[in-house]
Amino acid sequence: MRTSIILSTASRYLLPLMPLFSIFLLLRGHNEPGGGFVGGLVAAAAFALYAFAHNVKEARKALRVEPRRLIGVGLFIAVGSAALSVFNGKPFMTGLWYKEVPVLGKLGTPFLFDIGVYLVVVGVTLTIIFSLAEGE
């Protein structure tokens, strides 16, 4: 498959930039538009673009971890954050807050949950895209 040189060069620069932006979106998500879902999609888009510009094998190498593993870890973090309140004697999924931190904002279990969502979205999207592209 021939790919345009512009796309392949651009994707190389976008590969670090887009995940960075996605993390910005993730952190911003608590009070402003953004959040784990959007952030995850942007991050996944970076790797998907890389896969289109080069090939899936390269993109997998750039990702370093199995997308499936990301799903597992993400779900685990999300459930863990939701279950923390149970150990505190409150109903499942009650938000627990720690305190305000300069860059990250207000820390608490909802933030952990968002990180979980982020990882799951990256994992699911890339699993689908990679397996579709590899089936060609």
Partner: peptide
């Protein structure tokens, strides 16, 4: 929409297979 996204991705894979 999110659920639809997942379901449609699966449906496309299924149809292709």
């Amino acid at each position: 929409i999110v659920i639809g996204f997942g379901v449609q991705a699966f449906a496309i894979v299924l149809v292709k297979r």
